[in-house]
């Protein structure tokens, strides 16, 4: 880039300053969670809270990991969030393909509009009807119930995200594939998906995090301790007369860290995926 040295230096300085501020803003609450998780009860509630811990302890982590069913909750969350992600992607890939390739078909327009409308309903109101529906389907307290519900919430945005990525794949490729005798599904499977892979990964991550963090439906639809997911599992430490901050934070840290690490690891692909999707807007 052709820019003056002065401008470059000011720019770098301003960039680092901005990023440092953002880093503090984003990290502070998380670090405070980690810090609290490492404190003994007497230091958690204090009139003079500090980052420095006089008697650091792993007791909260031990308690969370050994006394309850935390590991089971973790496994359940992995199953539910993973299942919801896989199912939503499968459905959203086709839906996104239709939105991208047949935008003028009446059926596409109708479903597209419905997808958008579905985002406008307050979740509280869906609670009772969905509960009743799940009971009638005999799915209460099953992984399937949560997978289906999270899937429903994720499909609209996933479809629109994927539409964006598919738009970036040139139509000539499809014509060429068709001439080579490749069927439409063959094209999706063999050409479109590999080309849009980074975008699909980004969509998948979005979907996974949303399902991983959901609270209310996870609570209400699961009546079986063995199927309980993480967020409700964390919240039991908020007791009727006392919040066990140490344990609550320890559990939250254990829930957040794997996802955060996952994100850091996939961050490069994520950025690449979103970039291809955003081209030409």
């Amino acid at each position: 880039m052709v820019t003056s040295g002065f401008e470059r230096r000011t720019r770098a300085g301003a960039t680092y300053a901005t990023l440092a501020l953002f880093a503090v803003y984003c990290l502070f609450p998380f670090l405070w969670m980690v810090d609290t998780a490492l404190k003994p009860p007497g230091e958690v509630r204090s009139l003079n809270p500090t980052f420095w811990i006089v008697n650091p302890t792993l007791e909260n982590f031990r308690h969370v990991l050994t006394d309850g069913n935390f590991l089971a909750y973790f496994r359940n969350s992995v199953i539910v969030a993973g299942g919801a992600t896989a199912l939503s992607l499968m459905i959203a890939i086709f839906c996104g393909y239709a939105l991208s390739r047949f935008p003028r078909e009446p059926i596409t327009r109708t479903v597209g509009g419905a997808l958008l409308m579905s985002q406008m309903i307050p979740g509280v109101l869906l609670l009772a009807p969905i509960y009743i529906l799940m009971r009638e389907l005999g799915l209460l307290s099953t992984y399937r119930a949560l997978i289906i519900v999270y899937c429903t919430f994720a499909i609209p945005l996933c479809s629109f995200m994927l539409k964006g990525f598919f738009d970036g794949v040139p139509g000539e490729l499809e014509d060429a594939a068709e001439m080579d005798g490749c069927s439409r599904f063959g094209f999706i499977y063999r050409i479109l998906l590999p080309l849009a892979a980074p975008g699909i990964l980004a969509t998948a991550l979005f979907c996974f995090v949303t399902a991983w963090n959901e609270f209310l439906f996870g609570y209400v639809l699961i009546n079986d301790e063995a199927r309980r997911t993480l967020t409700p599992g964390i919240m039991v430490f908020k007791g009727p007369h006392l919040t066990d901050w140490g344990a609550l934070m320890a559990a939250a840290v254990l829930a957040v860290v794997p996802v955060a690490v996952f994100f850091v690891y996939l961050q490069r692909f994520l950025m690449e995926g979103l970039t291809t999707g955003a081209v030409k807007g």
């Binding site: 990023l19 880093a23 993480l230």
Partner: peptide, 16 residues
């Protein structure tokens, strides 16, 4: 920095 900025988003709303 890109990784740090994502962190708030992966913390469950109730916990945050």
């Amino acid at each position: 920095f890109r990784a740090i900025v994502i962190i708030p988003w992966v913390i469950p709303i109730v916990v945050a």
